[in-house]
Amino acid sequence: MKKTVQQILLSLIVSSMFLTACNSRTNEENPSIKENMTIHQNSKQGVTADESNNRNSQDSTLDNEWADTMEDIRIKLTFNNEEVIVNMDDNPTSKDFLSLLPLTLTFEDYAGTEKISYPSNKLSTEEAPSGIDPSVGDFTYYAPWGNLAIFYKDFGYSNGLIKLGKIESGVEKFQDINSDFTVTIEKVD
Results as ranks from 00 to 15, higher is better:
H40Q: 15
N42Y: 15
N56L: 07
T48F: 03
N36W: 10
W66C: 10
N42K: 03
E35P: 05
Q41L: 12
N54C: 01
T48C: 00
N54Q: 01
T38S: 10
G46F: 04
N56Q: 05
G46C: 02
E35M: 04
K34A: 11
Q58V: 13
S52V: 00
M37G: 05
W66V: 07
K34Y: 08
T48E: 00
S60D: 03
N64M: 09
W66K: 06
V47H: 08
M37Q: 06
S57K: 08
N36K: 11
S52L: 00
I39Y: 14
N42W: 08
E65Q: 13
H40I: 09
I39P: 12
N64K: 15
E65D: 08
L62Y: 10
E35I: 05
N53E: 05
K34E: 12
I39M: 12
Q41R: 15
A49M: 06
I39C: 13
N42V: 04
R55F: 02
D50Q: 04
N53W: 11
T38W: 04
Q58M: 09
N56K: 04
M37A: 06
G46K: 02
N54M: 00
I39H: 08
N54F: 00
H40F: 09
D50C: 06
T48V: 01
E35A: 04
D63C: 14
N53G: 02
M37C: 07
E65P: 12
N64E: 14
D63V: 06
T38Y: 04
S60E: 03
T61R: 01
E65L: 11
D50G: 05
T61W: 02
N54S: 01
T61V: 09
S43H: 12
E51R: 00
E65M: 11
N42P: 07
I39Q: 13
G46Q: 02
T48G: 01
A49G: 07
M37W: 12
A49N: 05
Q58R: 08
Q58D: 09
S43I: 07
L62K: 13
N54Y: 01
S52N: 01
Q41I: 15
D59T: 08
Q45F: 15
W66R: 06
N42G: 11
S57R: 06
T48Q: 00
S57W: 07
T38L: 09
D50S: 05
S43V: 09
T38M: 07
I39L: 13
R55H: 03
W66F: 13
D63K: 10
R55L: 02
W66S: 13
S52Q: 01
W66P: 15
N64Y: 15
D59V: 06
T61D: 05
K34V: 02
T38R: 07
Q58C: 09
Q41E: 09
Q45T: 12
W66A: 13
M37P: 07
K44F: 13
W66H: 13
S43G: 12
Q58H: 11
Q41H: 14
N56R: 04
G46H: 03
N56C: 10
D63P: 13
Q58I: 06
Q41K: 13
S60M: 01
D59E: 11
E35G: 03
D59Q: 07
T38K: 10
S43L: 14
H40E: 09
I39R: 14
T48N: 01
A49W: 02
